[in-house]
């Protein structure tokens, strides 16, 4: 793994700083997630370009409403993804399926855009937290959270290490050759140390063996304000609309 890649992953998870969770129009992350998944699913099985194009139009409007500095980041990822798809699909276009070239690229663009906007509107914390609302065991949430945490911390650690290697290397060498083994080994040791000290930290604060998702993260329907309830009900109405539209076109 390239440190740049890890850094990019960290940035992807950074979006929690713009966490939208507490406004009056709080939509349950489960709903958002389910709608996004449904969109991608329907798009994948749609026979023509109409459905993906419609979804793209709606998502573009949402993108246009974002602040300027977020827009470029949001659009970059689906663009890169569809560019890759185009490259992969070139043989199809050449061998006589030009329409497949267009639809697949379009579908990839749509799917990635939907996911990126989901990531933009919901922080990963709320997203993993929303799994508990689906009655998944809390340990599952704990594991997901831990994975994200380790990804960021170890990624940073890895970047620092490779920087240290680079500073000490006088000739221009590929860092992969120069010390990748050592770096990865150190990272494994570090992660080992981190897991044991994390357990200790938990025990020190009275952990008794069963993990419960924090009540601060849990939100129940009855906790919402009147407006929030209406917003959620209306949002739920999008599901039949989407399905109806899909079967109409």
């Amino acid at each position: 793994m390239d440190p740049k890649f890890i850094r990019a992953l960290g940035n992807l998870l950074q979006s929690d700083s713009v966490a939208a969770g507490s406004g009056t129009f709080y939509i349950f992350p489960v709903q958002r997630l389910a709608l996004a998944v449904l969109c991608i699913l329907l798009c994948a099985i749609s026979k023509n370009a109409v459905f993906p194009v419609t979804v793209i139009a709606v998502e573009l409007v949402r993108t246009a409403l974002l602040p300027g500095d977020r827009i470029s980041e949001v659009l970059l990822r689906p663009m890169i993804a569809s560019l890759f798809t185009m490259l992969i699909m070139i043989p199809a276009a050449v061998t006589g399926y030009p329409s497949a070239f267009g639809t697949v690229t379009l579908k990839v663009f749509e799917s990635v855009l939907v996911l990126v906007l989901l990531n933009e509107s919901v922080s990963w914390k709320d997203l993993t937290g929303s799994f508990s609302a689906l009655h998944l065991p809390d340990v599952f949430v704990y594991t997901l959270d831990g994975a994200v945490r380790y990804l960021v911390i170890l990624g940073r650690f890895c970047t620092k290490l490779s920087e240290a290697v680079r500073i000490r290397t006088f000739r221009k060498t590929n860092w992969r050759k120069s010390g990748a083994g050592g770096i990865m080994g150190t990272v494994v040791l570090k992660s080992n140390e981190m897991t044991s000290s994390q357990y200790e930290a938990m025990v020190c604060r009275g952990f008794r063996g069963t993990y419960r998702v924090s009540p601060l993260r849990r939100r129940r329907f009855k906790d919402l304000t009147g407006r929030g309830k209406i917003a959620n009900i209306l949002y739920a109405g999008l599901f039949p609309v989407l399905l109806g539209f899909f079967f109409a076109v």
Partner: peptide, 27 residues
Amino acid sequence: VGSLPPWFGYVLSAVIGAAVLVILFKL
């Protein structure tokens, strides 16, 4: 847009056009 009724394609085009323009100038 494809085989859609013209009015739908028209609205969709307007939505896409307006959104793209706003995005472009925000960038």
